[in-house]
Deep mutational scan, measured.
Amino acid sequence: GPGLTDLFKTEKAAVKKMAKAIMADPSKADDVYQKWADKGYTLTQLSDFLKSKTRGKYDRVYNGYMTYR
């Protein structure tokens, strides 16, 4: 089956995709945050998933999740 690194890459891609969806349409934020909360994502995990070469690119999404939880 898929190894943990593959799983991480898949999760990371999914999280980034959802983060971009929030940035494009902030009204989606609560739905996405709820999904992440259901998956039990911690802020540390989210921070790892949303690492970007562009500093602060996903800060709004991260901060939103922090206040959501």
Results as ranks from 00 to 15, higher is better:
G3A: 12
S47G: 08
Y62K: 13
S27F: 05
S27C: 11
Q45R: 07
F49P: 00
S52Q: 05
K35C: 13
G56I: 04
Y33D: 00
S52P: 07
G1P: 14
D48C: 15
Y58D: 01
Y62D: 01
Y68L: 02
T67H: 14
Q34N: 07
Y41H: 02
K20F: 05
T5D: 13
K12P: 03
N63A: 14
L46C: 02
M23Q: 05
E11Y: 04
S52M: 05
S52L: 03
T67F: 12
G3I: 13
S27N: 08
A29N: 03
A19N: 01
L43G: 08
R55V: 15
K20H: 11
G3D: 12
K16P: 01
Q45T: 06
F49N: 02
R60K: 14
A13R: 13
D25H: 05
D59C: 10
M18E: 15
W36Y: 01
P2V: 11
N63M: 12
K20R: 14
R60C: 12
Y62P: 00
K28M: 13
L50Y: 01
Y65W: 03
K9T: 06
T42P: 02
K28Y: 07
Y41S: 02
A37K: 08
V15F: 03
I22V: 11
V61R: 00
Y68M: 03
D6H: 10
L43Y: 06
L43C: 08
T44L: 12
G40W: 03
Q34A: 13
Y62A: 05
S27V: 05
K28C: 14
Q34C: 07
F8K: 08
L4M: 15
M18Y: 06
M66I: 12
D6W: 04
D25S: 04
R55M: 11
K35R: 11
T54F: 09
L43S: 05
L46G: 00
Y41K: 01
D31S: 14
Y41F: 07
A37T: 09
A29T: 05
K57C: 04
S52N: 05
A37E: 06
A24E: 09
T54C: 12
T42V: 02
K28V: 14
K9M: 07
K16R: 14
E11L: 04
K53V: 06
L50Q: 00
T10F: 10
Y65G: 01
D25P: 00
M66T: 04
K39H: 08
F8M: 10
K57A: 06
D31I: 09
K17H: 06
A24W: 05
D30A: 12
D48L: 15
M66A: 15
T5N: 12
D48F: 09
P26F: 07
V32H: 04
K35T: 14
A21Y: 07
S27D: 08
F8A: 10
L50N: 00
G40C: 06
K57N: 05
K16G: 02
N63C: 15
T44K: 14
K53N: 15
Q45H: 08
A14K: 10
T10N: 08
L50M: 03
K35S: 13
A21M: 13
A13P: 03
Q45S: 06
L7E: 14
Y65R: 00
K57P: 04
G3N: 12
M66W: 07
W36V: 01
Y41Q: 00
R60T: 12
V32L: 05
F49W: 13
A14Y: 13
Q45L: 06
Y33L: 02
A37L: 15
K17T: 07
D31P: 06
T10K: 14
N63I: 14
V15L: 03
V32A: 06
Y58W: 08
G64P: 01
R60I: 11
K9V: 09
G3M: 13
L4H: 12
W36H: 00
V32T: 10
V61N: 00
K17W: 08
V15Y: 01
T44W: 09
G56N: 10
M18D: 14
K17R: 13
K12N: 04
E11V: 06
D30F: 10
F8D: 08
T67C: 14
Y68D: 01
S52D: 15
M66S: 10
A24R: 13
R60N: 11
K12V: 08
V15W: 02
K53M: 06
D59L: 12
V61C: 02
V61T: 02
F49E: 01
Y58V: 02
F49L: 08
D31Y: 10
V32G: 03
L43T: 06
K57F: 09
Y33G: 00
Q45A: 06
P26M: 07
S47Y: 10
D30H: 11
G1T: 13
Y33N: 00
K51A: 10
L46I: 11
Y33T: 01
T42D: 05
A19E: 00
T67N: 14
D48H: 15
K9P: 06
Q45W: 03
Y65K: 00
K16Q: 11
G40N: 06
E11R: 06
Y68A: 02
F8I: 13
S52K: 03
V15S: 01
K28E: 04
A19M: 02
A29M: 04
M66V: 14
A21S: 12
K53D: 15
K35F: 12
K51D: 15
K9A: 10
Y65I: 00
K20A: 13
K53R: 08
Y41D: 01
M18W: 08
A14Q: 13
K53F: 05
V15G: 01
T44Q: 13
S47C: 12
K39Q: 09
L50E: 01
D25W: 04
K12I: 05
V61A: 05
R69P: 03
P26C: 07
V61Q: 01
D25V: 03
K39I: 09
R55D: 13
G56T: 05
A13T: 07
K16M: 08
I22F: 01
M66L: 14
D25R: 03
A21I: 10
G40K: 05
T42K: 04
T42C: 03
W36P: 00
K28I: 15
G56A: 04
P2L: 13
K12R: 14
M66N: 07
Q34M: 12
D25E: 06
M23P: 00
K9W: 08
T54N: 11
T42R: 02
D30Y: 11
S47K: 15
I22L: 13
A24P: 00
T5Y: 08
Y68P: 01
L4C: 15
K57E: 11
K51V: 08
K39C: 12
V32E: 03
L43P: 07
L43V: 07
P2W: 04
K17V: 07
R55F: 11
R60S: 13
G64V: 01
R69N: 07
W36G: 00
N63P: 02
Y62I: 15
L46D: 00
M23K: 04
T67I: 14
L43F: 10
K35I: 13
L4S: 13
D30M: 12
Y33S: 01
Q45P: 00
K9Q: 09
K16A: 04
T5G: 13
G3E: 12
D30L: 10
D48N: 13
A37M: 15
R55S: 14
V61L: 03
G1L: 13
L4P: 10
K17C: 12
T10L: 13
K28H: 09
Y33Q: 00
M18S: 07
T5E: 13
K17I: 09
Y65H: 00
F8Y: 15
K20Y: 06
R55K: 15
L50V: 03
K20T: 06
